[in-house]
Write a protein that binds this DNA or RNA. Structure first.
Lengths: 193, 193
DNA sequence: ATCACCATGTAAGCTGTTACATGATTAA
DNA sequence: TTAATCATGTAACAGCTTACATGGTGAT
């Protein structure tokens, strides 16, 4: 019954115990490259995980107006995380807002289409640079990257996937720009409103 | 105020007028490769679009127990679709269940990890074949593919993106499998529960 | 003095999924 | 006669986003 968000939190807690606040921060990067959550989602989910016996908290001294809780994985939680990680992942229903726009791109004149694709390309290229920095940081300690049983290896694998994705998007943008620019004949859109 | 789903429907109606039922079917393929919706979402959305003056319906003869409605784009709807298509697309918060599993893959023994990645690779390779078939179908009429002002060109561009994406995923799986298999020393997972 | 950071929660609203509901026509 | 297809809707629920709410400590 545990949700994807729940497993994201378990995955963070398997690395180290944290407060809800800290988990929210750790969700931003690098986990946030492929799964995000706001704190308003994190706190109720932690309560659910605790009700299911997958995590436990102890109250520690902290700065907030309410008691500060440090959560850690239980043995049950760790076992369930392992079981879930081994099951094949369900393909998510892809929802790509850019492709939705491209789907209706035939209504645009060439300049508008080119501008859209160029803006997209720039965003993906920028993300690639962020990943390159992250990559350098990981390569500072290359030993664990060779061992699939380390969390560093897992982070490395997801980063590689992110880089591959961005490279594919940049290449696609370049292809599309070439196609759009090759077309010199029909600069007019099909209908003007 | 129109949602992505609304623009998906407008994008379909810009190609041809349809009933809600037919729009639901047309959402499956090829639009469904990057945006899906169930009929329970389509009907209320069509009502909203009509309230906003972006689509209009006429009642036609049909098979259902209720009046059958054929929807078409209004001039306002077409103009709004064009405006929206030209604006840069917001990057969606990426949510990739596979990467979530990979993030916790360091808890698995090598065989389980390999099995997971192999299953993933097979799925992406299968999708590539589907796209290849779609590609052949589009290439039966190659003329409009050279003209960015045709809906065929737009469909072609999204298909190209889909192919690039699947290729990148397959390549990433192959890289990861190699990494996992190269590691012969630490076949044991870090903790057994 | 004001802002950022630590820290935890609730509430309202939107999007999307699954299930419920109806009923005619056509093909196996 | 049984199932698939055409055809349209509602309801319940899950997940996520945005906003509301509180209050202490340390830096500028």
């Amino acid at each position: 019954m545990t949700s994807n968000l729940g497993y994201a939190l378990l995955g963070l807690l398997a690395r180290s115990a944290s407060t809800g606040y800290d988990l929210t921060r750790r969700m931003q990067r690098p986990l946030g490259w492929f799964w995000t959550a706001a704190h308003s989602q994190v706190y109720p989910e932690l309560a659910r995980l605790e009700a299911d016996g997958l995590v436990q908290h102890e109250v520690i001294e902290g700065a907030g107006p309410r008691p500060t809780k440090r959560f850690r994985l239980t043995r049950t939680g760790r076992a369930q995380l392992r079981r879930w990680a081994a099951e094949p992942a369900a393909r998510p229903p892809e929802r790509d807002p850019l492709m939705l726009k491209v789907w209706s791109m035939w209504l645009l004149d060439r300049d508008a289409a080119v501008a859209l694709v160029e803006a997209t390309r720039a965003e993906h290229a920028a993300r690639l640079e962020v990943y390159a920095g992250q990559s350098l940081a990981l390569l500072q300690h290359p030993e664990p990257l060779a061992d699939p049983a380390t969390p560093q290896f897992a982070a490395w694998a997801t980063l590689r996937a992110g880089q591959g994705y961005e490279q594919h998007r940049v290449a696609w943008c370049d292809w599309l720009l070439e196609e759009l620019r090759r077309d010199r004949g029909s600069a007019d859109p099909p209908h003007h409103d």
